[in-house]
């Protein structure tokens, strides 16, 4: 699990912290078509049960925070081109190039988010109010691993610790 990994520190990052990008390109297979979206590398758990409330929250969070992936207990949503696409959560496939909701992990800080991204697990925020903190902390980890973007973070040196 993510607790068992440790990033290797980079003493000479070739980066300006303020130029770090944490947008992620995600490929989604929907209705047998592959679509690519660029958004924050998190999903958000929506706790409402009412469909109208769910849709309203999704639209609001997307505008405010550029998050495009959402969960409820039994469903998964993608907000793309102002439309909401809804999926039932199914058994996972092994192809990690495609988003796999069964690889999702609830996180509380940016270091855990970084670990999820590195392990191709998918980080979920259960508390949308934490997103600014998590974004900042994620950028800190990226800075210290010499990762200018999410693609580089996904390849950052790590070790598994007992």
């Amino acid at each position: 699990m993510i607790q068992n990994i440790k990033f290797i520190h980079c003493a000479l990052p070739d980066i300006d912290f303020n130029e770090i990008s944490i947008k992620q390109k995600i490929k989604i297979k929907a209705n047998n078509k592959i679509k690519t979206i660029s958004c924050m590398p998190f999903a958000v758990e929506i706790k409402s049960k009412n469909t109208k409330d769910i849709n309203k929250q999704i639209a609001k969070i997307n505008i405010q925070k550029n998050i495009a992936l959402f969960f409820t207990k039994s469903k998964f949503f993608i907000f793309i081109n102002k439309h909401i696409i809804e999926f039932n959560i199914k058994a996972n496939k092994k192809n990690t190039d495609q988003f796999n909701p069964n690889n999702a992990i609830i996180i509380n800080n940016g270091l855990d988010a970084a670990k999820c991204i590195r392990l191709k697990q998918f980080p979920i925020l259960s508390d949308i109010n934490k997103i600014n903190l998590i974004e900042e902390q994620l950028k800190v980890v990226m800075f210290l691993t010499n990762s200018k973007n999410i693609a580089q973070l996904a390849l950052a040196p790590i070790v598994y610790v007992v």
């Binding site: 980066i15 300006d16 912290f17 800190v140 800075f143």
Partner: peptide
């Protein structure tokens, strides 16, 4: 070289490009 310290330091320098 001290990127971790600079990150936390209130007056830290966060630009290590070309270091």
């Amino acid at each position: 070289t001290n990127p971790a310290q600079e990150i936390v330091q209130p007056e830290g320098n966060l630009n290590f490009k070309n270091a």
